[in-house]
């Protein structure tokens, strides 16, 4: 009789465990924004999945010598870009070839990296984990290390229904975190929602921006995701041929994906090689056609505009309205570890 009772009890507990679902997480699409491109069916978001991804993002366990985490190169308060270094640093202080971009609004991106070579956010993290200049590890080792951590095993089981942690689970958990990094509460956003007003200078800067910059840095995401050249000239120390690395076509040489300008004030240094550390320098480049080097896309060339110092300052004032402090300092996206 006792045994029967225990069997009933454990069956009951199993049933509860089975039906207690992951708490689903709705993905918020700000008003007036296009439809996200991320395939949420491939990786349904849940509160637990997000927290698992967040913990992994901040955990150096993913690197060869357990010294480098994703956040070593993608810091929250710099809009998840690498601060200070023109190109990113990884394990053994190895220096990469490119500037780590900020991570935000990734759900809308049709492809990733400066050359658009990465087509899915789910697969993206294989790059940093296995790249010798970044985390320098290999996936088999990462899985072994993760399976050894009891807390991780339990959460993986909860999120993906198995303790047999596979590559896809690690990658999908990371993607649940990174795809949730949505920045939509800058002064610019609140202005478009008519919650605040721009200053006179910001208004002037916005008008200039729409005239000279918006073709490529298209609102509301501040990129059209196309491959262009803004005429900064080839960096002879790195000779990065950009998009042509992927397509092998001469016409794509030295083209890079137009970056978003959101949270720009905090995501310095700028450009694929991090050559400019100040917005002033960026504006100085765009202001004078004499600075424009080959190759350069047709949009700016057709106009051959000049911007005087006051206009440059106006544009910078506008660019600063793209800062979203709520995003940069939100505890929801900050450090967390399920190992402690």
């Amino acid at each position: 009789m006792k045994t029967v009772f225990f069997i009933m009890l454990s069956l009951g507990l199993c049933a509860v465990a089975l039906v207690a679902p992951n708490q689903e997480l709705d993905f918020f699409v700000p008003q007036g924004w296009p439809k996200p491109r991320y395939n949420f069916e491939s990786n349904p978001l849940s509160q637990e999945g997000f927290e698992l991804g967040r913990s992994l993002f901040y955990d150096p366990i993913l690197s060869k010598d357990s010294t480098v985490s994703c956040s070593s190169c993608h810091l929250q308060f710099t809009a998840f870009a690498h601060v200070d270094h023109p190109t990113s640093h990884g394990v053994d202080s190895r220096v990469g070839k490119r500037n780590a971009p900020g991570l935000m609004n990734l759900a809308w991106a049709p492809y990733f990296h400066w050359d658009g070579g990465v087509l899915s956010l789910n697969g993206q993290a294989v790059n940093p984990i296995t790249h010798p200049d970044e985390m320098g590890s290999d996936l088999a080792t990462v899985l072994v290390k993760l399976k050894r951590e009891k807390e991780y095993a339990a959460v993986f089981k909860k999120v993906f229904g198995t303790e047999d942690i596979k590559t896809q689970h690690v990658l999908k958990a990371l993607a649940q975190f990174t795809v949730s990094l949505v920045s939509y509460n800058s002064k610019y956003d609140r202005m478009t929602r008519k919650e605040v007003k721009f200053s006179e200078q910001e208004k002037k800067g916005y008008a200039l921006f729409l005239k000279h910059c918006n073709q490529c840095h298209k609102e509301p995401l501040f990129t059209n995701y196309e491959f262009k050249s803004n005429g900064i000239g080839v960096n002879t120390a790195l000779v990065d041929s950009g998009r042509a690395n992927i397509t092998g076509k001469a016409k794509d040489a030295f083209l890079f994906r137009v970056p978003t300008l959101r949270n720009l004030e905090y995501s310095f240094p700028y450009m694929h090689d991090g050559r400019f550390s100040k917005l002033k320098e960026v504006m100085e480049h765009y202001a004078h056609p004499a600075n424009w080097a080959f190759p350069i896309s047709t949009e700016p060339v057709k106009k051959k505009y000049m911007l005087n110092l006051a206009q440059q300052k106006d544009i910078i004032a506008f660019l600063k309205t793209l800062t979203d402090k709520g995003f940069l300092f939100s505890p929801q996206f900050g450090y967390s570890s399920i190992r402690e």
Partner: peptide, 12 residues
């Protein structure tokens, strides 16, 4: 599975 070393990470 990228584990098998056939996945091209930087060029999907």
């Amino acid at each position: 599975d990228p584990l098998f070393g056939m996945y091209w990470a930087w060029n999907t």
